[in-house]
Design a protein around this nucleic acid. Structure first.
Lengths: 215, 215
DNA sequence: TGTTCGATAGAACTTATGTTTCATTATACC
DNA sequence: GGTATAATGAAACATAAGTTCTATCGAACA
């Protein structure tokens, strides 16, 4: 998503009208309809602004076609993806995660996230992983669960985070405790022991913000 | 969804063309476009069949409006709600659930369910409840979690189900075990004891098929 | 065979709708 | 102020596209 080019009030108004109209009628408005409903004096003004909107990539038009306006796919795609996050695979020792920064590579899978699971719908920098293993059962996370993580490189004491242990080149899900210049990675499973690593040997990959399970 | 009224081949063809066209262009086709692309001899034939399709409720038309065709809202609404299930409140002792049958009442809330959580996307008869209490922690379900249940009146041994205890008029989440003419309702929490009730005193309200948690 | 009726054709008619031209008014800038 | 440029107005134009009328065709049927 690039920075929004500046739009005039009128352009924003027209764009909004079109969106609303399509939403309501399932077909786009005619130029004269835009003109009349927005109280614009002339169709040429509408055309003028539509052309600008098209140049700006906000919509597409089919010449000479009645109602040949379609709201730009970009926006539609964005809206459709509004509650999706990239699914980056399984979190298991040995298989390092790709850096969430380079999600741009086209082939990433996406999965839907209900707003109830990530309140405020702040899905920026959130990604999903499928959990392998039972190291977090005491935190009510089981094998096969899908965890949602918000990417962040720091953590509070006790946060449940995905951490990469650099020397191992492995990534696991653990509770995070900083203890001096060491870090204790605590499994949430009474049968498992914590791991201690040098602070500069770990890199936090994100904090767990949600869980989804299928049964 | 009522039984599909019989459509002629031509009508099906036209309907399919419109759907595809809208999908591709984001605006509906003109009558002449339908005519030409489907190799129909006259626009009046298209009109004739469109009228029938409209009577059948397969689409809606706006008279005199270019491209004033919109695929019936029924379908659109269905598609939009394809991954939503009714959210019927909190599951706590004392507050009986409304019968999932009468979901039709307009005011029901809906929540999104990612296909990953209910595989096969078989969302028929699935509803959601928010869990109150910790009786299921050992089954990795905590207070505040949202559980997805598929409505069914029977259960297998050990299934996690929502059951109504008729005499109590209460509903809880438990594991279900039939033992003779009694039923054992087993909390998944070592600190809690099972409940025994007469088999004819319980009514199963659904089986847990998924869990979602926000943190 | 002739009648009825659903489906199709062809064509003319009307108008809804995009396009274009040119004049006019605001806005900014030197 | 004067000039360039953006934004607006008004109207005429061209045509894309819905409507309608009437004729024809084929199948079902008495």
């Amino acid at each position: 998503m690039q920075p929004q080019p500046s739009l005039s009030n009128r352009q924003r108004e027209i764009l909004g009208y079109i969106e609303q109209f399509v939403d309501q009628h399932n077909y786009p408005p005619a130029i004269r309809q835009i003109q009349e409903d927005l109280g614009i004096s002339s169709t040429s003004v509408v055309v003028y602004n539509l052309n600008i909107l098209e140049q700006r990539g906000m919509l597409r038009r089919e010449g000479k076609v009645s109602r040949g306006i379609s709201i730009s796919k970009i926006e539609a795609a964005f809206e459709a993806n509004a509650n999706q996050v990239p699914f980056l695979g399984t979190i298991t020792a040995g298989s390092p995660l790709p850096d969430p920064e380079d999600l741009s590579s086209g082939t990433t899978e996406f999965i839907d996230v209900p707003p109830e699971v990530v309140p405020g719908n702040k899905l920026a920098n959130v990604y999903a992983l499928k959990v392998r293993g039972y190291s977090m059962v005491d935190a009510l996370i089981a094998d096969g669960d899908i965890v949602l993580l918000r990417y962040q490189e720091t953590a509070q004491q006790g946060d449940m985070v995905a951490v990469r242990i650099i020397s191992d080149n492995s990534v696991t899900l653990k509770r995070f405790y900083k203890e001096g210049d060491k870090v204790r990675l605590q499994p949430a499973n009474v049968t498992m022991d914590p791991i201690y690593v040098a602070a500069n040997n770990v890199r936090i990959q994100g904090r767990v913000v949600g869980v989804m399970r299928s049964m």
